[in-house]
Structure formats: C-alpha cells, structure tokens
C-alpha cells in the first residue's frame, strides 16, 4: 500500500456503516419515528447533505446506480459534487435518468417519474423535527411524539388560515405517517407530498447535523395534515413548462431579463430532457429550436 490515503468502500468505515444500518432498520420498523444516530464528520459542510450522504454511503453497493438531484436538477453544484464523491469513493455507476437509478439522493424534490419497487429515495434533511419552530425544547417534542400530542401542529395551520385565508405552508408540509407519527417531509414542496403516499420505493431521511434518521417503508400511508373545512391541496401552475410543455409538474420560475421577463420550466431537469428528446416542445423551446 502506498503512502496516499485510501478510503474504505463508500468512504465510511464498516463499523460506522453498521451503526447507521441499525438506525435505518429501526427507522423502517417504526415509520416516521426519528431515530438518533451518531452522525460523523463528512468532508463537506453541514447543510450540504451530510445526513443524506451518510445514509447513501451505508446502503450503497458496487452494483448500485446512483442519481443525485438538488431542487430537482442533476446539474447543480451540490448534485454534481455528491455524484462525483460516490463515483470516486465507491466506484459506482452514476446516472441522471430516474428510471435507471437504484438509489436517488435528493435535496428538496421527489422526481416526477413514478418511483418503482427496488428504488430507494434518500432525502437530505436540515431540520427533522416538525414541531421544532412551535416548541423549542427537545425533551418536550419527544414527549409530544411519544404521547401523540399533535394539536400544536394544527395551531400552526390555524395561524396560516387566520393570516392568509388559506394554509400558506408551501414546503416542509407536515404529514402523518401510518396514522401515528407526524413527520417533516424535509423541505420538499407540498406538491410532492401525495407522491410519498403508498410509494413503491423505500424512502430514507438523513439529518446529519441533527443526528436523526427516519424512514417511510414502501406502501405506507402518508397523509398531509389539514382542517375539515380547509382541505390539503397542492400548488397549481397557470402555464405549462416553457421548454417541454409539460403540465401537472412542479415548475421553477426563471428570470430572463431585468424588465419583468420570466419563464416557467420543469424543476425536474431529467423529466424535462426526456420529454424534449421524445419530441415534446414548449413555447420557448420552439423558439430556441428555430434560432
């Protein structure tokens, strides 16, 4: 062995991976429950997905195909760095195509294409505790989870309606998992909440700084909280994607100039590209092709 430092497969040592796998097994056994684990220092700053990276490192094998998305995009710094990281320390194949991936690590989005059995979605979670901003004491929030005291969550939704006339929470929208634990689905837009319900794929959540792992096993009920007279609803978009013309997908607003010009494009870049390859064209996509 030469003097250059060598990494264990997937960066983490085997003991650490076993510890994280035990936490994951417990999380899968108790859907929505936040399992504490001994989070390690990773070669990236907190907030860059240290939790998600540790979960991925613990479950990845040499045959896996990894996809990493950041706000739906495969080509942003965070996604490119993490993909390169695992390509280097685990020599795994990487892809940008949702259908080909066996593990998808995500920051703040769920892919538009329906996930299938055998795929694993790993979320990067900044703050795992849905009650945190309502109740700052950790001892108290744990007790509230244990005794199923979730009235406070509705106080937040009540405040939304009182102030804005509707439930104005658009992301990190609280859900109840399998009729028991209230869970923060990480800061995904509430548009993605229905995709978590009875999903065929295993969903794992890692919060590195907060030392928590939680999970939603396949075919688990995930119900968004609401009021009887103010039911849960997802965002709706006025116009289709400007590049591929897709409707019923989550769109990002892109500013085009300093005179108010803007366009809406798919947040899921892979979904958008696949559609354009298949011949779908949006309003601005046409123009681009013509030029």
């Amino acid at each position: 062995m030469n003097a250059v430092a060598n990494y264990n497969f997937a960066y983490l040592d085997e003991q650490t991976k076993r510890m994280i796998r035990r936490a994951i097994l417990k999380a899968v056994a108790i859907p929505g429950y936040q399992v504490p684990f001994s989070s390690r220092e990773m070669p990236m700053p907190y907030g860059w997905g240290t939790g998600g990276v540790q979960v991925t490192a613990s479950i990845i094998g040499p045959d896996d195909v990894l996809k990493v998305i950041d706000q739906g995009a495969d080509d942003t710094t965070n996604a490119v760095s993490i993909r390169a990281f695992f390509a280097k320390v685990a020599q795994v194949a990487t892809t940008t195509h949702t259908a080909e991936a066996t593990i998808i690590q995500t920051r703040h989005r769920i892919p538009e294409r329906k996930l299938e059995a055998g795929q694993i979605l790993v979320y990067q979670v900044p703050i795992p505790e849905p009650l945190r901003f309502l109740e700052p004491r950790e001892t108290e929030t744990r007790k509230m989870h244990a005794l199923e005291e979730y009235g406070l969550m509705h106080v937040k939704l009540y405040e939304d309606i009182a102030r804005h006339g509707r439930i104005a929470t658009t992301y990190a929208y609280p859900v109840k998992v399998e009729g028991r634990y209230v869970m923060d689905p990480s800061p995904t837009p509430k548009f993605d909440n229905p995709k978590m319900h009875r999903s065929e794929a295993l969903q794992l959540f890692g919060a590195g700084r907060e030392h928590r792992i939680y999970a939603v096993p396949p075919f688990t009920d995930v119900v968004s909280l609401d009021f009887e007279d103010h039911p849960f609803e997802i965002q709706h978009f006025e116009e289709p994607c400007a590049l591929c013309g897709a409707e019923g997908v989550y769109l990002d607003e892109v500013i085009l100039d300093d005179r108010g010009g803007h366009m809406y494009v798919c947040s899921d870049t892979d979904h958008c590209e696949e559609r354009r390859e298949a011949g779908f064209v949006g309003v601005l996509g046409m123009k681009e092709a013509a030029e």
Binding site: E149, G151, L152, H154, V155, Y158, F227, E228, D229, H230
Partner: peptide, 14 residues
C-alpha cells in the same frame, strides 16, 4: 384559545 380544542381533536377551522 383554540389550541386546547385542537389538542383534543377538533379539526374544523370555522
């Protein structure tokens, strides 16, 4: 005022 009502399971905003 409403917190206790929501804590005992009232889920109707109006």
């Amino acid at each position: 005022v409403g917190e206790r009502l929501m804590a005992v399971g009232d889920r109707h905003y109006g």
